[in-house]
Design a protein around this nucleic acid. Structure first.
Lengths: 152, 152
DNA sequence: CGCGAATTTACGTTAAAACGAAGAATATTC
DNA sequence: GAATATTCTTCGTTTTAACGTAAATTCGCG
């Protein structure tokens, strides 16, 4: 359905306004789809992203600052986010001897196993985009990259 | 900057995954820009949207259900959201005599004035997209519409 | 009419985000 | 090397979101 119909707005002032509203609206739909697929595993979307980032680390370790830099939502309180993952024993925390301000985070075996369990559900969400041709998705990504240029 | 660089992910598994991550990431940037422009007025983005929706009503009135249906974030607790707007005297609440379950909401004069003050800041955010050609934005919106098709 | 189902809003509770500030460790500058 | 600034994480507090549930009203149907 076109965005005008979904939010029942007869028309937008211009293409910019329409694009911005559409981005927010669609992102909510995407996040909802992911949340739904994560729900049965009892972890939130940001928590899942932390696990993925940690898994992707070559040496296995990352600091809170590393995560903050890379996460989709800016300025999350990584400390408390990770507290919950530690409680669930999905990640491990240790001190960095060469810089004692930093705390090193690492995904645990249980965390890796959880990721493996989640993966099929997650890629199922990706597959909901199969009806959109890849070249259109590439153009979309390029346009989104352009949009962010002056935005932040 | 391309999304891969921003979140320092060397590459995505496929165009679908990249597009979905990019949508969420860009939406966060857009919301941040709007929030910043609203901050000095002391209202949140959802609150602003409620004001805009109420202003757009022909007869001036809307119920909580009307708002819920149209809002960008689904299933917000409209009651408490509107509580805050009532406290700030930006909207008015009254009972519907023909259906006493419903509560009618209406934007106040102060609310209209607030919208007028905010408008220039808001359209300034839109103008940050001026470097993106309109036809690209139109294609973007069409692709986002397609993406939502199977998603919700 | 009377009963159950559906709609609409409100609320209680728990979890998470927002924001600022503090504390500890390190880096920099003179 | 002492003072200052900066970095990195944590914490307190206040808002806001999430989620289920309850209360009130209306509707549908026999």
């Amino acid at each position: 359905m076109k965005i005008e119909e979904e939010i029942k707005q007869s028309k937008f002032n211009n293409a910019k306004e329409k694009a911005l509203v559409n981005i927010i609206y669609t992102a909510n739909a995407v996040e909802d789809a992911f949340k739904k697929s994560l729900k049965s595993h009892g972890i939130s979307l940001p928590q899942y992203n932390v696990l993925r980032i940690l898994k992707g680390r070559k040496d296995g370790y990352a600091t809170c600052g590393d995560l903050k830099e890379v996460m989709l939502d800016k300025n999350p309180d990584v400390t408390r986010l990770c507290d919950k993952l530690v409680t669930k024993k999905l990640i491990l925390r240790s001190n960095n001897k060469s810089n004692r301000r930093q705390i090193l985070l690492k995904i645990s075996d249980k965390g890796l196993k959880t990721l493996e369990e989640i993966y099929p559900h997650f890629s199922a969400v990706n597959e909901l985009l199969s009806h959109v041709p890849d070249d259109r998705l590439e153009i979309l990504s390029d346009t989104l990259d352009m949009i962010r240029e002056n935005l932040q």
